[in-house]
Amino acid sequence: MDGMQALVVEDEAKAATFLSNGLSENGWAVDIANDGKIAWGFLREKRYDIVLLDVLLPGIDGWSIIRQMRANGIPTPVIFLTARDSLGERIRGLDLGADDYLVKPFAFSELMARIRTVLRRGRDTTPTSLRIADLELDLIRHRVVRRNQPIDLTPKEFALLLLLARTPNEVVGRKLIAKEVWNMETASDSNVVDVAVRRLRRKIDYPFDKPLIHSVYGVGYVLGER
């Protein structure tokens, strides 16, 4: 994600700061706009790779900004961030040309995952295999090999590994894991994810000297070399 430009449109200072910090640490260059007018000024001057847009803003609101953007032919992907999540609002946001819609409160790791998905869209490069250090995933045959040693995984274990492998070196939250792997919209027992990851580690990491799956205390898990 290095060299990418993001615009954070958010009137709440704390939220703007943590979004900006989080994105910067992931290699993004970030501009912050506290209201709609400033945001529109930025959007006319610079090309961004992503816009994170709060709906309720002083001055021009989020709906108007995206309408103005699309009317002026600015194609930058937009992710709405809002505390309102009625179905009608979601539909409205997407109808206006938003690329995604994230309801507060959200996990930062989830936001990063959404950003990646939005950016991947359009490029349309579905890899047939993934390689992280000495670990290889064959996405077609659902086979996993580490150091030329095939590893036998259950379908769920493979799905979990794939989720982590798609975003190497980035933290994936427990909630997102529960949602992506088991389709659990609300998982109150996130220790189930821990159990699943522990089992995966037994197969992926324990037989080898260098662990690839790391836990990030309180947040989730990350796949990569440390």
């Binding site: 179905l87 769920k156 529960a178 220790n191 189930v192 699943a196």
Partner: peptide, 28 residues
């Protein structure tokens, strides 16, 4: 205010995923 998105499904198909999730909890 909640609109139900109803569809026909087989209960066993639909429960496979959550049960596999709880299976982990159970074996633990």
């Amino acid at each position: 205010d909640l609109s139900l998105q109803k569809s026909w499904f087989r209960v066993a198909d639909e429960l496979a995923q959550p049960l596999s999730y709880h299976e982990l909890q159970a074996t633990e």
